[in-house]
């Protein structure tokens, strides 16, 4: 197995606050890696650093053997690493169709055209196909602000998958989604992932979701990797039980320190 993504002693601090201390993570092609960890363990910070939203204070990020430290989100994404967000990042006042059309418009053109129309029949058809794949065609004409959480999350992930990434980083894909819908959502996402062959790293608080979908599990604690390995091994790890899974009642409130 070849390492697709590899981070070495990745660290980030905000003033006196350490958000990530020393993160060594390796992701191989085809893996579905679950990530658990309590508040402020460094999960979102890790994703932000890998995708170029935050510069690491120190450490190295290798993608297919090449360093991607210092690249911005656009470059990282073009290289093949895409992400979703804890709170879906969409265009709230626009319709679902417009959201997808804009995404296609930006994806297809390195320099955006000024005069040729975006909402052509071909583009709309393509957008419909994408929405169908994620089972949200019926919401096409609706404004994003009116959508249920689950649909927003799916749309957010669909936009991330648009560029056919080699690695998909999902930041709490099921947070805010009703318990009954969590598995449906994950099934839909995993179907799309399997089709494209991308490796996945997903942050999740629900152990059932972790157990059902991940092939490997990493536990974060205090900005470090506490345990990394087969799902059952990590879940039964004494330290993980004591420090991570023992108190994850505050699951939905995770908000890590962000730089303005």
């Amino acid at each position: 197995m070849s390492a697709l993504l590899e981070t070495r002693s990745l660290a980030r601090n905000f003033g006196a606050v350490t958000a990530a201390a020393d993160i060594d993570v390796t992701i191989n092609a085809g893996e579905i890696v679950g990530v658990i960890g309590s508040n402020g363990a460094g999960k979102t910070t890790f994703i932000n650093m890998v995708t170029g939203y935050l510069a690491p204070s120190s450490g190295e990020i290798l993608f297919k053997g090449k360093s991607i430290v210092g690249k911005n989100p656009r470059q990282v994404m073009r290289a093949g690493i895409c992400r979703s967000f804890q709170v879906a990042q969409l265009f709230p006042e626009l319709t679902v169709l417009d959201n997808v059309l804009i995404a296609y418009g930006i994806m297809k053109h390195k320099i955006l055209p000024l005069m040729s129309p975006l909402a052509t029949k071909a583009n709309i058809q393509q957008a419909e196909q994408l929405l169908e794949e994620y089972g949200i065609t019926s919401y096409m004409a609706e404004t994003v602000v009116t959508l249920p959480q689950g649909v927003r999350k799916l749309l957010d992930i669909a936009l991330a998958m648009l560029r056919k990434p080699e690695i998909l980083l999902l930041d709490e894909p099921t947070s805010g989604v009703a318990i009954d819908d969590k598995f449906d959502l994950m099934d839909t996402v995993m179907r799309a992932v399997r089709k494209s062959g991308a490796a996945v790293l997903f942050v999740e608080h629900d152990m059932e979701v972790i157990a059902r979908y991940s092939t490997r599990l990493i536990a974060f604690y205090d900005g470090r990797v506490l345990a990394d390995g087969a799902v059952s091994d990590v879940m039964n790890d004494e330290k993980v039980k004591e420090l991570v899974t023992g108190h994850h009642l505050d699951i939905d409130y995770e908000q890590e320190v962000q730089h303005a």
Partner: peptide, 16 residues
């Protein structure tokens, strides 16, 4: 055009 739509997009959500 895509550039025109991109304007709305910038207003709505720069991160996206």
């Amino acid at each position: 055009s895509p550039m025109g739509y991109a304007g709305e997009a910038v207003r709505e959500n720069e991160i996206r």
